[in-house]
Design a protein around this nucleic acid. Structure first.
Length: 503
RNA sequence: GUCCCCAUCGUCUAGCCCGGCCUAGGACACCGGCCUUUCACGCCGGCGACGGGGGUUCGAAUCCCCCUGGGGACGCCA
């Protein structure tokens, strides 16, 4: 018999009352937050907030050997940086805890016993080596690898014998023979698969007694009353197994939404070899969290009104899971760079300065040497030049360092003609004869005056001054630089240049 | 190999469900011009795509089938 089961949309509970939306982000603490996971977290958050629901953070650490405490902190750090807030989680608690799978073992045991009672599971004594050999052989024959159900009907004597050999059994779930499992994915639409394609009876408890992901995820989602499971597309193939488990356990299935993959430039699954893939790397390079989040939101989703620069509030307002694209997206940071520039230009100057200071310190500057307000002014002038915060010191350098190095091009330019040094000399002389402090306006006038006196204009007049003040042939507007530096430092730099070049 | 998913400019995408308003729209990138006695910013303009083949229809990017291509999953990982 070929039964078809269709999962219903569970926005109402048995009493017909509206069910509050509850979604979860359930990462495994691997030590870094992959951008794909970050996007999954974001979409869950946007969905929850848009629907006035709750976001639950759950740590999936059943594979204990691979997990560490520090790795859990990495998750908190990444989410907080992105501005994603959760309503329940290991750190803040909630009514459905504990929120770490490693602390829910007793709960799982209860449900394992239930399945045992119902006769839906059995012990399997095959070793991993035996299974691997079987898989290889199947592959060689061109067959899909699957567990054959070898231990499904072991007699008590056989089991006893295996136990005496010291073998520790795993627990396998009996997959129905020929069932078509159908579910309606919120993003992909109707997905159907036959139970024959599931790879045979799958393991739900390891030989060390630790239950496995596919099993615990069902229990947790059911017990935590998750209404919508929003996760990566790579979980599609797990979904039928989980639906079988929901059924076996007597739980109601949630709604599923599988997000398209994020691909690298070569269109394969995004991985470390494609460059930066962890949230931390983007933070460290100096991407603003708002820009990063905005960019991720547009990977696979697009607002109806086409507005692309969106704050978290605006994202929440517009986000609809139905508008999520079903095709995978290539992770290309070109647009992120542009977005970061946009955000940098519009950021509150105090906050931006706070964020830039660590990069300045890393570049060797002693921040205490600079007046805070003055520093903010410098940030204000230079912000439009950099795309990531780590670029900031490079552009701010002309304000911060009086003893600079000359670009080769600039040095050659100055040496080509004695007249160019004369411009610098004349400017120095004129400035020294003036009483008042430099402003943008007075500096412009002074330069004009120098030009008149020496009878030079254009590039021959402006370029020597720029070089004398910065050592470079391009950069911020010179009068603004001069005003910001102040007369004393301008004079100091002119002398410095004269000394350096004339020796 | 088997199953599942996917397919619009270089990239992110709108349009597709409910065929005509699409000589396919936007953004980023790229190229050109203007602005700026520099660079960048800004402004203006340009380049640039419905993977292929069959249907259905008066009409298809949109509906159906096949092919091709890409991706994912097939674990005592999650």
């Amino acid at each position: 018999m070929n039964l078809i089961y269709i999962v219903e949309f569970p926005t109402q509970n048995q009493k017909g009352k509206e069910m509050a939306v509850r979604v979860r982000f359930a990462p495994s603490p691997t030590g870094f937050m992959h951008v794909g996971n970050a996007r999954t977290a974001l979409f869950n958050y946007l969905f929850a907030r848009h629907n006035k629901g709750k976001l639950i953070l759950r740590i999936e650490d059943t594979d204990t050997e691979r997990h560490s405490e520090e790795a859990v902190n990495v998750i908190y750090e990444a989410l907080k940086w992105m501005g994603i807030e959760w309503d329940e989680g290991p750190d803040i608690g909630g009514n459905f805890g504990p929120y770490r799978q490693s602390q829910r073992l007793d709960i799982y045991k209860e449900y394992i016993d239930k399945l045992k009672e119902k006769g839906l599971v059995y012990e399997c004594f095959c070793t991993q080596e035996e299974l691997e050999a079987m898989r290889q052989e199947q592959l060689k024959r061109g067959e899909p690898p699957r567990y054959t159900g070898k231990c499904r009907h072991l007699t008590e004597e056989q089991k006893k014998k295996f136990l005496e050999e010291g073998r520790k059994p795993v627990l396998r779930f009996k997959v129905p023979e020929d069932r078509t499992i159908v579910f309606n994915d919120l993003i992909k639409g109707r997905i159907s698969i036959n139970s024959k394609q599931l790879g045979g009876d799958f393991v739900i408890v390891r030989s060390n007694g630790m239950p496995v992901y596919n099993f615990v995820v069902v229990i947790d989602d059911a017990l935590m009353e998750i209404t919508h499971v929003i996760r990566g597309e790579d979980h599609i193939s797990n979904t039928p197994k989980q639906i079988l488990l929901y059924e076996a356990l007597g739980f109601k299935t949630p709604e599923f939404a599988h997000l398209p993959m994020i691909l690298g430039k070569d269109r394969s699954k995004l991985s470390k070899r494609h460059g930066s893939t962890s949230v931390r790397e983007f933070k460290e390079k100096g991407y603003l969290p708002e820009a990063f989040t905005n960019f991720l939101a547009l990977l696979g989703w697009y607002p109806k009104d086409g507005k692309e620069i969106l704050s978290m509030e605006e994202l929440i307002e517009r986000f609809d899971i139905k508008d999520v694209n079903s095709a995978p997206a290539v992770f290309d940071t070109t647009k992120l760079n542009w977005m970061n520039q946009v955000y940098i230009r519009n950021y509150p100057i105090e906050k931006l300065t706070d964020l830039i200071i660590p990069y300045l310190q890393k570049a060797g500057y002693n921040i205490n040497n600079f007046d805070r307000k003055w520093l903010e002014k410098v940030v204000e002038i230079t912000r439009e030049y950099f795309t990531v915060l780590s670029d900031a010191p490079e552009y701010m350098e002309v304000f911060l360092k009086d003893e600079f190095n000359f670009e080769e091009k600039a040095l050659n330019f100055m040496k080509e003609s004695e007249n160019r040094l004369k411009v610098v000399e004349e400017l120095l002389k004129t400035l020294e004869s003036q009483e008042e402090e430099i402003t943008e306006e007075t500096f412009k006038k002074t330069v004009k005056q120098v030009g008149k006196t020496l009878n030079v204009k254009g590039k021959e007049l402006f370029m020597p001054i720029r070089i004398a003040l910065t050592g470079k042939m391009s950069g911020v507007e010179v009068p603004i630089l001069a005003e910001t530096l102040g007369k004393e430092r301008v004079i100091k730099r002119l002398r410095y240049t004269l000394n350096k070049i004339r020796g």
